[in-house]
Nucleic acid binder design. Structure first.
Lengths: 360, 360
DNA sequence: TTGTAAGCGTTATCAC
DNA sequence: GTGATAACGCTTACAA
């Protein structure tokens, strides 16, 4: 029955109007349900549209209305499971609300990121979801100024700018990780930090320091290693850490890739986890349980972040004057085999599960 | 200096023309480098554009030229590492060529996929990259007919339709996997197949059968288990397989998730890999080496697939009459610890590495 | 070499 | 209630 864009020229509003015997403005109103018009008129327009398989041109509509029903999504690396998950959540939510998603990958490069934002603005997106790689608040404001479309930041954020801010409970998570280790008698604890250009890396490192300080634990010179976010970088840092003497009895990796790298380093160096070194990780990769040993980690749903960020953005796009939203997503500690008692710390005891934040 | 879209109204071609003291058609020509025009005229237009920070409106341009410089990307599940990797490769290549990417996730649902294609056509994308979940050739032709933009299929493909077809060497890969197991004395080999709506699942299953047949090996009733592509489904099938008696001595999982699921099943049932059961996998997850035991698997680069598919599409978009491209991407066998000699098959011997296809 | 004018497919502002 | 008509911002015959 319906649709058959097949033949040649695309069916236009004018065609529908002609067929229904009305003007195109009337046809437009009928299809958009705007204004008052005779029920029978609207009926015949709708019928004509159906018969012709009319699909309004988003292009023309956007040109006229200055709104594109498109949201931009900018992340450091879309092939990272974390960002891919966030994207999926955001995409689902946005599409449900009638928005399309324009994806941009900044490749962890500030200039590329800025260019991506420019492109999105040029294309008149109605809103932006951004995880930034070290943009300053100034450059951000410069690029995505006040008059521009709303921008919700997530994961890699800037404080106080933009239309909203969705982050993980980084400090709470680090506190839980350190607490778990401390309870198991560890005091020589090292940390593998991520690229400090990103807010999440900074918050996690600070969270680590606070958690250590709160317990009166020292962090010796060299026990804080700043990496980029790659597995290779985690491996390299791990190798150096294992060479130190005295060596740490536990390592906190601030991401799954860093943890994986450290695990690889342990394998190479013949260091047995957790007997000789406990390893805990901020992210819980979906195969965490199948690693050897299974990884003790903080768990959360990337998709959930995407969902929340997208909802916040949708609100903003609909009415620009709703207040900015700041959300902290809680994380949950999952204790598995990669962490255990500190060597020489006597006693057994496995810490139980622990929830950070308000749960969900 | 330049650009300052900041204030209010967006600067338009007319503004540039006015400032340069020419008509807007001349300005357009100058900026697009079309037709002959006095060097000084072109100069003053360019200068004016620069001074005003002019950014042409892609919307208006597209409406007029009927080309959007946008490519659609449709996959079953963007949060799968495989598709995320392909996306990344495609995105890089497309952006380099000046195209943007509109992402759609079909959620492994035929109807959603069809709707996504419709949406893309409505938005007048210039081309489509599609991994289909069980579309028939007919429905595909119906949706993306001859007059429509070029569509390159990858991974989940349809034979002979569309503007091109990029696939993995599924049969060759399965041959390599079975050969490896056979060399190690296995003859009771089971397979975990993926959802048979997708071409890759079918090809892998057929490849398995051929490889077995070629060696005169039987596949007993129940040794072929069809799953969907999830880890949970692999786990369930694995559990059933382990209950069989006599039990298989080796399992070929046709994807990483399936292999992970099977590995989990072995853990649960206390079956030791590879002593009691050898496990090999089609995909090589990036953490394959860190699993216990490390996974014997076929390796390849998802990004490479994206790159190749995107290049093929770009060619097609530029000149619709170039012949369709069909590419098979080779896969490489990586032997690790999850596969070993069949129980009771005597002798040692680890098969060496083996490359399928032309390598690279 | 440059300008005029038409048109891409809508929606919005008027009159009627 | 409905219909002209003018944008939206650009490209492209066709004239000059």
């Amino acid at each position: 029955m319906a649709s058959s864009r097949s033949v040649n020229r695309r069916v236009t509003l004018a065609d529908v109007a002609r067929r229904a015997g009305v003007s195109s403005s009337t046809a437009s109103r009928a299809l958009n349900g705007v204004g008052e018009l005779a029920p029978e008129t609207r009926g015949s327009v709708l019928r004509a549209a159906l018969e012709l398989g009319f699909q309004p041109s988003p292009l023309a509509r956007s040109l006229r209305t200055r709104t594109t029903y498109t949201a931009g999504f900018v992340v450091p690396d879309i092939s990272s499971p974390f960002y891919a998950g966030v994207l999926k959540g955001a995409q689902l939510t946005l599409e449900e609300a009638g928005y399309r998603v324009l994806l941009m990958d900044s490749e962890r490069d500030r200039e590329v990121e800025l260019a991506a934002l420019e492109t999105l603005l040029t294309h008149q997106v109605d809103g932006i979801l951004l995880s930034t790689t070290g943009l300053t608040a100034e450059r951000f404001e410069e690029a995505v100024g006040a008059s521009d479309p709303p921008c919700v930041l997530f994961d890699g954020v800037l404080y106080g700018v933009g239309a909203g801010c969705i982050t993980l409970d980084n400090r709470g998570g680090m506190e839980a990780l350190v607490e778990h280790l401390a309870e198991n008698g560890h005091s020589r604890i090292a940390v593998l930090a991520g690229a400090l250009a990103e807010s999440s890396a900074i918050e996690r490192l600070e969270g680590f320091r606070c958690a250590m300080g709160r317990r009166g634990l020292e962090v010796p010179e060299g026990f804080e290693r700043v990496c980029d976010w790659t597995q290779a970088s985690g491996r390299a840092a791990g190798v150096e850490l294992l060479r130190d003497s005295p060596r740490p009895t536990a390592v906190v990796a601030t991401s799954d890739d860093l943890a994986l790298g450290c695990l690889a380093a342990c394998r190479e160096q013949g260091v047995v986890v957790p007997e000789e070194l406990s390893l805990v990780s901020f992210d819980d990769p979906y195969f965490g349980e199948l690693l050897e040993p299974p990884l003790t980690a903080l768990s959360y749903q990337p998709r959930e972040i995407g969902r929340i960020a997208a909802s916040a953005l949708i609100e903003q796009m609909r009415s620009p004057d709703v207040p900015r939203r700041e959300v902290r997503v809680p994380v949950t500690l999952i204790v598995r085999g990669s962490s255990g008692r500190a060597p020489g710390a006597g006693g057994a005891g496995e810490a139980g599960r622990k929830v950070s934040g308000s749960g969900r």
